[in-house]
Design a protein around this nucleic acid. Structure first.
Lengths: 249, 249
DNA sequence: CGACGCTTTGAGGAGATTCAAGACACGTGG
DNA sequence: CCACGTGTCTTGAATCTCCTCAAAGCGTCG
């Protein structure tokens, strides 16, 4: 594990903390008041780096705290009984990792960088401190955890849809997440491979490729390797709401 | 909504409360100390009844509190954009409902009785009271919510398995849950239809039927309508761990 | 430039769905 | 108590979607 690197700049302007971080609307501080964010800022280790393919934490290892990605992306994976990898989620810049270890104090998943990442680390023992002091954070974490419930239902819904609907939904979801963080919603680079997309969606990587091609031929998107441009967002959206009209009741 | 019926017996022996309830190991009180259970017992409305097909709560309605089933079973459902029903989970006696409304203060799902149910109701405003007083309950709820995370991964795993593996897993899961609550683990009655099982597992009801028949012909189970007897639990278990050796990497 | 990994594309096949028809179970009323 | 009707369950056959295997194309990085 690398030691956390605390900025040594004396001028506060140049020091990025939770208070002036541009990700504050999406990160852990979301929902906390100004004072609490200040408290939080003192607890966070910034500027941790991992290269592509390196793990941020491992399944089974003791909970070390929550992670907020400042740049780069990661995949959150789990392994089945036969050691097959299952990609539980992709994590984009500004998103938070670590919920899989919060309750049991042991990480259930392994987090691996898909490209070079820079992240902030809120240590576990400091989370405990905050939990006993601030009922606000407590409530916040509860809320965050419960929103997992919604995500689960969303995923169950997707799992009974066709491969085309899954891919459409995947593209729109990534687009939306980029948009919310101030990146272009219509043109972006996928940091994960077709294999990884397929794994996450429960379809073969060849199928992902074929459907990307299909969408391109239908003028819905333009794909060139990992670069994606969404041409017809509306139609892409229709793709996965309209097509299941005669699905099971 | 029916008014809660509080027992009018004067003798404490005849009054079932959280303190002497046989479900205390599985219900909300799990993990609370004796004093806290006593507190809880004062807050709970008991003996609420719903008939088969009736809703216990509706998606979109304000969070009214947590529900613990004392007898009977229910299904927790959600609806997709086209109004198709998705069965998120089945709830067996002694299990707790309502997590889908805890964070947002609005139920995300609809809970419907699969047969006559008798349930206890812990009102929402009393949960709030307890949350500000007892950090223990707070922590407990957080833990419960986080365990949703595990369930989600488990379900994602299942969703890339074959129909046979899904059905095997379903039977074993129900069996395990009955066992934990003191019912026979090898012989039980399924309160849900083939249609509902299929919906929950993401397969057609005909497929469920066919696989029940297949398992019977392999001497793994005996099925007669809704009555199920597990003959070879071990082999049934192998069925869904062994069969995916050459699944996707 | 050559090697390796990722992506694309094709062909064949397996598994699950859909549609359709018949069997069975359960509740109702005669 | 039996006949009847409705809804659930079973079973078969045809079809379709997606997977698997295989090979070729493309990109990237030393």
């Amino acid at each position: 594990m690398t030691a956390s690197i605390v900025s040594k700049t004396s001028s506060t302007q140049n020091t990025v903390t939770c208070i002036n971080c541009n990700l504050d609307k999406f990160c852990i501080p979301k929902g906390l008041d100004h004072f609490e964010i200040g408290e939080l800022a003192l607890l966070v280790n910034r500027n941790n780096i991992r290269q592509k393919g390196e793990a941020i934490y491992h399944a089974g290892s003791p909970f070390r705290g929550m992670i907020a990605l400042r740049s780069g992306s990661a995949k959150l994976i789990s392994f089945d009984a036969n050691g097959n990898e299952l990609i539980v989620d992709f994590i984009l810049p500004g998103e938070v990792l670590g919920f899989d270890g919060l309750a049991t104090q042991t990480y259930n998943c392994t987090a691996i960088a898909l490209e070079t990442v820079n992240y902030c680390h809120l240590p576990a023992h400091k989370i405990d401190e905050m939990l006993t002091q601030s009922s606000c954070l407590n409530h916040l974490l509860l809320q965050r955890s419960c929103s997992q419930f919604d995500a689960q239902i969303e995923r169950m819904m997707l799992n009974r849809r066709s491969a085309e609907e899954r891919v459409a939904s995947f593209l729109l979801q990534i687009s939306e997440r980029f948009k919310q963080r101030g990146y272009s919603e219509l043109e972006f680079r996928l940091s994960m491979s077709r294999e990884e997309i397929g794994n996450h969606l429960g379809i073969a990587h060849e199928t992902v490729s074929r459907i990307f091609h299909l969408f391109q031929s239908k003028q819905l998107i333009e794909v060139r390797s990992k670069q994606v441009k969404i041409i017809d967002k509306k139609e892409l959206f229709n793709y996965y709401t309209t097509y299941s009209l005669n699905s099971q009741k």
